[in-house]
């Protein structure tokens, strides 16, 4: 376990370094580090501190959020197919974010953007859990998720199409696929508080999720308040996914892939998987963000495209296995 942790942190450190050094401005390693540490008014300092630093921070925060939310949902639902993107939470959060931008409140009140995204995410989680039931089968969960995703996506498109801004309609792809291009420290400041609160809530589920593997009755007998656990999960997930989507759009499959890969390494304990998935999610998103900058640097390739290319085959594999096991 601690060896896994050290491995993940080492990989993360390497990716953070790479992310700081990759970009069109072709700064040398020494120059980059100096500009990052010393700051100042030079163009290099502006590139390092105002453009690359927020990009690294957002990839870490949002990747960790998505991995953590995926691990928590899978642990709670005891269902490996749960992912905030797949079950429509990201889509609903995007709808909330788009609404706040188009009615103009996001421009005047900085915190309105994540607040609206949080509201959208909450509605999405509640709707899915209500439709799928507390111990929803894989089938009802995925069906409810598809319905919520489709509705949220259609409404997002509608809002953007009705916008007086001619650029808005082209941004449907950003809200559905996600990107970290040209974000600033302002976005870090907007997203950080909600992500921190949500992450603390989700990490507090450690003991409850471990107990839940023995079944709900056993967990209740061990003194776990299941009602509180459920509410904490809902609000924690909505907070981290809402804040992430508000600044980077909906990025799918991170919460599906990362817990799946790391589960064997933590002895399938959902509590231990929380920390590991947060680190793993950050690794996956940083890697994806480095990849979009290296593959097609001038095209702003969307992050969700890469995570889907990795995640969708795994999702299909999981569905196939679920069917074979007759669940």
């Amino acid at each position: 376990m601690s060896r896994l942790m050290m491995c993940l942190i080492a990989v993360l450190f390497a990716l953070v370094t790479a992310s700081f050094l990759i970009g069109p401005a072709a700064l040398g390693v020494g120059e980059s580090v100096a500009a990052l540490v010393n700051g100042g008014d030079t163009p290099a300092a502006m590139v390092m501190r105002e453009i690359r630093l927020p990009r690294v921070l957002l990839a870490l925060m949002i990747g960790a959020s998505l991995g953590l939310a995926g691990a928590a949902m899978q642990g709670y639902l005891r269902n490996p197919l749960a992912d905030p993107g797949l079950i429509g939470v990201s889509g609903s959060a995007a709808l909330g974010a788009v609404l706040s931008i188009q009615i103009g409140i996001a421009g005047s009140v900085a915190f309105a953007l994540p607040a609206f995204a949080l509201g959208g995410a909450l509605i999405g989680v509640f709707a899915v859990l209500l439709l799928a039931g507390p111990r929803g089968s894989s089938l009802t969960l995925i069906l409810a998720g598809i319905a919520i995703s489709a509705l949220a996506g259609a409404l997002t498109s509608l809002v953007l199409n009705l916008s007086p801004n001619p650029f808005a309609a082209n941004e449907i792809v950003f809200w559905m696929m996600g990107s970290l291009a040209d974000r600033s420290m302002v976005h870090v400041a907007i997203a950080l508080p909600l992500i921190a609160v949500g992450a603390v809530m989700l990490l507090s589920l450690k003991r409850g999720l471990d107990a839940l593997t023995l079944g709900e009755d056993a967990a209740a007998a061990m003194g776990i308040n299941l009602h509180r656990l459920r509410l904490t999960l809902i609000f924690g997930t909505a907070a981290v996914v809402g804040a992430s989507t508000a600044v980077a759009g909906a990025i799918g499959f991170v919460g599906l892939v990362v817990p799946h890969i790391l589960r064997p390494f933590v002895g399938a304990r959902p509590g231990a998987l929380l920390w590991a998935s947060a680190l793993g999610g950050a690794i996956m998103l940083l890697a994806a963000d480095i990849a979009v900058r290296m593959i097609l640097p001038e095209r702003d390739l969307k992050l969700g495209v890469l995570t889907a290319i990795v995640g969708a085959p795994l999702f299909l594999h999981l569905i196939y296995r679920t069917r074979r096991e007759g669940l």
């Binding site: 188009q102 103009g104 996001a106 801004n165 650029f167 082209n170 040209d182 600033s184 420290m185």
Partner: peptide, 19 residues
Amino acid sequence: RYPGGSRAEAIMDHPVIGS
């Protein structure tokens, strides 16, 4: 800028553009 918000134009709010 056009009325209504868009991410395309939000780039003009980036601190780098400001400075």
